[in-house]
Nucleic acid binder design. Structure first.
Lengths: 238, 238
DNA sequence: TGTACATCAGTGAACGCGCGTTCACTGATGTAC
DNA sequence: TGTACATCAGTGAACGCGCGTTCACTGATGTAC
């Protein structure tokens, strides 16, 4: 039935046009941001009449969803690719590659970054289709953390550190039952810190604060690895 | 001339109406977010014809600017108030009060938070009027850091920590010449971390990750104090 | 204190625009016998 | 291989809406003499 080849020309053309509409829409987001995205403008650029778009996307919100999913996927591709080219045992290298890839992608795709990490589009609720792609970057992060723990490269918490409870992190903990809650908490904070830095830079809050974004970010990413993650240069002796 | 009292009834009425327009607009942002803010809708609610707004604000963008300034001011009021009611010598208490106030305000005013810390409104460039208000919260933070340094309560950097250069932070350093660059960098990262946490929570990225935002945030704020800021419980002996 | 004039707030109509979505339709492409 | 029918993509007109901004205007409020 749904053979890979004999799909019929109609289906192939349909897939191509869907792709073209999506790409055109991405182009609009790249130029003008997501807020003003217009079905009609996209249709014009594709060379269709506006109502024809409805053969491909049932509504503007569905097109938006597709754009969000595609942005998450694009970021995740970039990050996974960077992280996987570091030597597995070079944990700091993997962390730095991940962070740099996040910032690099964000700087190269500011509007797409804004689409997924900025103010949610009003009246729009992200459907669950997005979570598969949205989960990929955090998963890379947790992978690093897990390997660091296995290699005995994580400092213990400072005495008197706050203890995050399992309850607070219950939903995440259920997805990664083999990772201690304490580690998940570190991962979450480092994740939020990295994106906090990137968001501040992209959204203009580092204006008149920082002169060179890239080296500052590298330094801070390294600092996060050392302090928040507690990643050590060599295995800890017991 | 411009006496405080005999301003004339006209001027007073004008000020009151300006306030009313602003408050109505804030109400709209609270309900629907900033993206769809409409002059006409505001005018309707105030009970004016749409063109009358132009006697008070020269354009939609100016109204938006006023809203942004007002949001920054509201946040800063809230934060300064909370921070200043902690005992001066209780540095961790001051930090925690600051952080909780930030999150508290954000949760209570999500759309206003989105207006100032989310995706910048497309085609809109924040004028310098905003910086006075925008600077107040970071200033509170630096105050804590400065006092902590004076009280000898900051851990030295871990050996092998990345050294942020003065060049990278030149603009900020010029505003706070008495604070060492290294401290400014810590402050920046902690600032970004706190807002990263809050943004993730407000913008939905902690969905299915965290079950209870408030206690988790408190724990993480404390962790930031200990690891990023390097704030110790007692003065360091030399 | 009273009058003549200037300032200003608010009106209402209009301009020109773009938007998302629906609907009946025309032709072309595929499918079943 | 050929015909009859069903499926589908794309059209073009229309609906109903709301927007920011301009402009000539009316009256009321203030100011100067």
């Amino acid at each position: 039935m749904t053979g890979t080849k004999a799909e019929g020309a109609r289906q192939r053309v349909r897939a191509e046009l869907t792709r073209e509409i999506l790409d055109t829409a991405i182009g609009h987001v790249k130029r003008d941001g997501a807020a003003g995205l217009s079905l009609r403008a996209v249709a014009r650029d594709v060379g269709m009449v506006s109502s024809a778009i409805y053969r491909y996307f049932p509504s503007r919100d569905d097109l938006l969803t597709a754009l969000i999913v595609s942005a998450y996927a694009s970021l995740a591709d970039h990050v996974e690719n960077a992280e996987s080219s570091a030597r597995r045992s070079d944990l700091l290298g993997r962390w730095m590659a991940t962070c740099s890839a996040i910032r690099g992608w964000a700087v190269a795709h500011p509007h797409e970054y804004g689409l997924i990490f900025g103010t949610p589009v009003p009246g729009y609720a992200a459907p669950s289709d997005t979570i598969e792609q949205a989960t990929r970057v955090p998963t890379v992060l947790i992978g690093i953390l897990r390997d660091a723990a296995a290699a005995n490269r994580l400092l213990p918490d400072l005495p008197g550190s706050p203890k995050v409870t399992a309850r607070e992190l219950a939903p995440l903990s259920k997805q990664f039952p083999d990772v201690p809650v304490e580690l998940l908490a570190r991962g979450l904070l480092s994740w939020a810190s990295v994106f906090g830095l990137v968001s501040f830079e992209l959204f203009g809050h580092f204006h008149n604060v920082i002169s060179e974004g890239a080296p500052f970010f590298e330094h801070e990413a390294e600092r996060i690895a050392g302090t928040v993650l507690g990643l050590t240069k060599r295995p800890i002796e017991r």
